[in-house]
Design a protein around this nucleic acid. Sequence first.
DNA 1: TTGAAAGCGCTAACAT
DNA 2: ATGTTAGCGCTTTCAA
Lengths: 348, 348
Amino acid sequence: MARLAKVSQSAVSRSFTEGASVSDKTRSRVREAAAALGYRPNLAARALITRRSGIIGVAVTYMENQFYPRVLEMLSQAFARAGYRILLFTGKRGDSSDPILEEVLRYRVDAIVLLSATLSSHFDAECQQAGIPVVLLNRRTEHANVSVVTGANHEGAGTLAAFLVAGGHRQFAFMAGLEAASTSRDREVGFNRYLAAHGLGPVRRVVGHYDFVAASTASRQLLGSADRPDALFCANDHMAMAAINVARAELGLDVGREVSIVGFDDAGPAAWPLLGLTTYVQPVEAMVEEVVAITRRRLADPLAPAESRVLPGWLAVRSSARRPATGIVSVDGEEIWKPNPIGTFETP
Amino acid sequence: MARLAKVSQSAVSRSFTEGASVSDKTRSRVREAAAALGYRPNLAARALITRRSGIIGVAVTYMENQFYPRVLEMLSQAFARAGYRILLFTGKRGDSSDPILEEVLRYRVDAIVLLSATLSSHFDAECQQAGIPVVLLNRRTEHANVSVVTGANHEGAGTLAAFLVAGGHRQFAFMAGLEAASTSRDREVGFNRYLAAHGLGPVRRVVGHYDFVAASTASRQLLGSADRPDALFCANDHMAMAAINVARAELGLDVGREVSIVGFDDAGPAAWPLLGLTTYVQPVEAMVEEVVAITRRRLADPLAPAESRVLPGWLAVRSSARRPATGIVSVDGEEIWKPNPIGTFETP
DNA sequence: TTGAAAGCGCTAACAT
DNA sequence: ATGTTAGCGCTTTCAA
């Protein structure tokens, strides 16, 4: 035992605890002995007594969409700054996260973050009973006890619609993601609502299941037809990239002139010159910080209520869609679209 | 206590342990009570006594390179199948992983996997003393006690060189990644060695630091010059994608005709029609399985030696580089290059 | 097959 | 400031 190294027992514990009542002399003696013996505190044992593991369970469904690795990395970093580590759980896209969550709970994680996934009401109840805060990132839910952080899906999609209308487009199409995903539904509603409010439509609808291959197939069919739309809004960038690939490389279309394609997220390659994907940027950094903040509040006070945050992003104008005559401003070297009369579209 | 539910104590333990000595009757009674009370075994407590946490510490340095999210996801899945979870540690690219590892060890992880990172001899010793197996994925090391799984960097780079030579290229360039990374060094050596052996060269050298922006800058300078090479080998796909973006979108070059660009990894978008990146494919699935297998062997027998595996991949022929007249075969709908006389280049 | 008792490595009162 | 004692929730001999 490290405790035999010099003399003591809980002194060791205190020496490894921030702000504990120990003399510098003792602490340094302990540290020294520890270094010599290769001793380090066993966090599992500590967790047992403090009832705090310092671990956050994070469930992520798929990493192929490049948006998620970035979110995951930032989550990891942000939680690390707050003194937490991430226990990673991966599932298949579209799967129920229940079996995963059963596992997570056994590890006595301090909190659970679901990245683009939802939980059943059953697990909502389980977590509540266990006193484990749950935060959904990039998905909504009706469950009362779980916190939610999303981008401004409805408003963002409305902005994209307004942008396309301002660009002179008249035949619109929407590519849905997973039908069960709130992101896809919210973006679809926001998009359609704006168009309907302006007497435009109908909006042709295809489904890409948030999958690159499926989105490619859908794009091929949609854009390869004689009466193709002149504007396509894909529910996320991942699918929009598939659409651009098909449009340009397979169909030989001049994206941004013959057909406009816009997305949502601002996933990594969207900004590549070769793609130039015009998209509604999700403020990842702010979203992640919000997740951490909410988690900490709930951890600090078990009675703290579930919170719900919708974080606005902005429309990054690049080359995949025809540009409106006005409203484009340059911010930090990036062009974004800010139509003049604020509130051109309603946000219910 | 769940134990009060019916009657017993260690019976509960046995009921939740595979292959323990319990009657079906007892087990089902316990399970029932557990369900009613929302009880589940505390894995931290179990870890304390069994000295097995069931957790693998995985350190990853950066996720921007799309190759890594895929590896991470597969690692998570493969370890899950073996009954392990992943505790995720992220660091900055190029950083020492020592501070991270100090953390990892406190969690009493069963093993450590370093993804594109190395450890100091100090931590090599620490881990060895603690009896924790360490596996490096996609990096080599000289430390005796750590296992290593990599792709065939040397041979792969040689194959790419042979491919470019067969394609009639004569002016070669190499874009290095991080100078400290074994992958970059090994690939450079393999590439240069083949060319030198065939009396070709010199190879112009630029550095992209495995970073998209740095690689773009390097590409701009290299490919924008009057005496640009006709073949560029980037130490990984991430940088090759930057190079293609610059070449096509900025410089207006016809990649695959005016200049050939090849990479290494087969990161996600490499196969996109828009990029068509010819690259040496790393067999991720096999590499990950090998990591898990090695880990399990060392966990099963603490005396098992460190192992080292180099897994061969293959050259996927797409459109970013001029094609040789012969040697291209079609496998599973993908074109790969298999030069006829096996062993056209040496593999020291 | 089951229970009783001991203890994994730590922290948290409570003394001192 | 430091030591003593008890116990977190589990697994594990050892008996029965």
